[in-house]
Design a binder for these strands. Structure first.
Lengths: 333, 333
DNA sequence: GTGAAAGCGCTAACAA
DNA sequence: TTGTTAGCGCTTTCAC
């Protein structure tokens, strides 16, 4: 176990360029005053030696790591990779890198604290399972945190989410336009703020428009965990005329059960709307009408917020709502 | 922009515990000799002050960052989140954290070098688009790299992949058992080592068993990019009796086109086998027979390899092949 | 615009 | 087992 010293340091570059170490430093720090000539000299020397500034040493003096902790989604939901790419890419543009924060605390819950040894400048919590410990740690160390596409109630943190209430309203309008009166909101089992907003928008609007209340029925956010609840729903008397589902996965589970086990036609016997617009929504088997979240925007905004809070030491909370778009395919009419 | 100093340092802890700074350090470093009594004292002081060792300062002296660069997949393929979770969790067990390396080099390609400012101890490249620059940088800085579930030919690095050749053989046997003779391998457009292995295993075995050669037809690894190629294939005379697809997404595209546009029954008119066992493979619309990769094992092994290469300074290449399992559902008979 | 010197928080010799 | 000392590679005053 023989760990070598770092190969090239700013000292080496300084020597080769014939300047002081601090001049080298200045060249690599934005906005320092260095003459164009020495700057060139230093760049040349740096390139010749293949020099990379040591971010750790830098952090030690600047007290900024340019590292953002990223709580990444725990569900194997098709859109989450895109989320990660978008966030990572936005961070990169601003000179930040992302460190993964494992959401699964194993055993003694020492894992969360571990990440704070790296002194992340901020944390982005991307639609993952709730983790109280994380929020407490952030508060303790005064690390700004922003929630991406989710809100954990009771936590005082910034967030960027889609306008779920409007989505609910639009779905309700769509169904009301078809003069339906027995409609269902199919929800997941874990109550979340964003889901509740959709429920509220849907129920409020449908009530207003038709005078009837939708049934809210609990299943699961994913496919396989919802099958039995859907069977129960469809076995209990007349099927609903339309179903608005909490996720696309759930909507697809509903469509499959309705078609293959209850011989119902979508959209003629029952209309279905999902939420998320996962790639599978376009597939020929589903052609699902659904709401597309503007993930690029969500990523951009959350990164912007976190970087502002870092730079400005501005601890005021930002709550942003991004519009969604209804994508009509063949599961509605 | 008022950046505060770090709140609590080992010095503070030392003072409170009434010991020297180096004793505090020893308490937080595995395998140092400290008496149980002082250890307790230090722990108490640390807890009272909410002390976290500064990983940057530590790295500076140890020349080890305990950070692993992670090149994460660029495709929005359903299993990739699981991959990330598994790798991240395995890393955590060994005391490492993962820093995301953005695969998309924007513009001036300065992004890759950036990550090396953090002096990652190693790099795991998880099934992503090939990036020559990354490999060169790693070599330049002597950073071990291991490829997860992929092999970029021409690169001298360790890798862990599934036994794709065997998968091809098993698929061939399955089809040969049904006495078929017109079978197709539906491949993606970008040639990869793992895919080629599957092609080889499939063709070799089918040839051996039946004396016939499968047709190898090029489409795409994802769903929507493959539709036209599949239409072309099915429009050209009699449909194949069976198709082995490079990915599950591709298999599902084939099933959809076959059923909805060519009125073919799966598996009676044409049998289909996929590869990956994504969650959708179990869905009622597909019930796809496919090969399940042992991602947990792939993650575990790749982390083990990288950590060994870091610890042992062992630059010998490890090439590991992990068995796959054929999961038979209703798309074959 | 540039250099010298001090110090960020930690670990690793070397003594004791 | 413990304390003292000397850096790790960088940035940042403060002179000049």
């Amino acid at each position: 176990m023989n760990i070598p010293k770092q190969t090239v340091t700013s000292k080496d570059v300084a020597k080769l360029a014939g300047v002081s170490q601090s001049t080298v430093s200045r060249v690599f720090v934005e906005g320092s005053s260095v003459s164009e000539k020495t700057k060139q000299k230093v760049f040349e020397a740096a390139k010749a030696l293949n020099y990379r500034p040591n971010a750790f040493a830098r952090s030690l003096t600047t007290n900024q790591s340019k590292l953002i902790g990223l709580v990444f989604p725990d569900a194997d939901y098709p859109i989450h990779m895109k989320t990660l790419q978008l966030i990572s890419s936005e961070l990169q543009k601003l000179g930040y890198s992302a460190v993964l924060i494992p959401w699964q605390v194993d055993g003694d819950s020492h894992s969360i604290p571990n990440i704070f040894q790296y002194r992340v400048d901020g944390v982005i919590a991307a639609s993952a399972t709730f983790n109280t410990a994380l929020y407490e740690e952030c508060e303790e160390f005064n690390i700004p945190i922003v929630q991406y596409a989710r809100v954990v109630e009771g936590t005082k943190s910034s967030y960027v989410i889609s306008d779920n209430y409007s989505a609910g309203q639009i779905a309700a309008q769509k169904f009301a336009d078809s003069a339906l009166n027995d409609v269902v909101y199919l929800t997941g089992e874990v109550p979340t703020f964003t889901n509740q907003e959709r429920v509220n928008g849907f129920c409020d609007e449908f009530q207003t428009l038709t005078g009837k209340s939708p049934r809210v029925i609990e299943a699961n956010y994913d496919y396989s965990g919802s099958l039995d609840e859907i069977r129960t729903l469809l076995s209990a008397g007349k099927p609903p005329q339309a179903v608005f589902c909490a996720t696309d996965n759930l909507a697809m589970a509903f469509m499959d059960i309705a078609r293959f086990e209850f011989n119902l036609d979508v959209p003629n016997d029952v209309q279905v709307i999902g939420f998320d617009d996962i790639p599978q929504a376009t597939w020929l088997s589903y052609q699902l009408s659904t709401f597309r979240q503007d993930f690029a925007r969500l990523a951009r905004e959350s990164v912007k917020i976190i970087s502002n809070q870092i730079k400005e030491k501005d601890s005021s909370l930002v709550r942003l709502m991004v519009p969604v778009r209804f994508i009509e395919r063949n599961s509605t009419k």
